[in-house]
């Protein structure tokens, strides 16, 4: 593997547009059956324009990007804040960059800033991962 240094960018991941089908599949598979993500009538009654994506779906996309980069067994910590609701038809792009390389627990570890954003650049999730390298 090439050397991991501060500023190293990990391979980004672009997702297909969020569809109702995406949300239905994720609701079933994840066990998050909150109707606000799959039932337009419910979402509208709750004052939302329509159903919207689970925050954890985008966090799972960030997770895919991380485990594409390093095996999951090296993942030490992974966190995310949900900044903006991901709407139907949004195209999400995941990216990550090494911000620190340090030693901890007898391991070399990298701190990675991870971001999910819409095509227009609006950040939807911002988080951090610690990965053993």
């Amino acid at each position: 593997m090439s050397e991991v240094v501060v500023g190293t960018e990990i391979a980004s991941l672009e997702l297909p547009p969020i569809s109702r089908f995406t949300l239905a599949l994720y609701a079933g598979a994840s066990g998050d059956h909150n109707p606000i993500h799959i039932d337009s009538d419910f979402a509208k009654k709750a004052g939302m324009p329509d159903v919207f994506a689970h925050g954890m779906l985008s966090m799972a996309y960030l997770g895919r990007m991380l485990t594409n980069w390093q095996p999951q067994s090296r993942l030490v910590k992974f966190s995310s804040r949900f900044l903006t609701i991901t709407q139907l038809y949004d195209v999400i792009m995941c990216s990550g960059k090494v911000t620190e390389v340090f030693e901890e627990g007898g391991q070399q570890r990298a701190r990675i800033e991870v971001i999910a954003a819409r095509k227009d650049g609006t950040q939807t999730l911002a988080g951090e991962a610690i990965v053993a390298i």
Partner: peptide, 10 residues
Amino acid sequence: VSRILHGAQE
């Protein structure tokens, strides 16, 4: 449940 949003996850 309709007023809940996910704020952060670690």
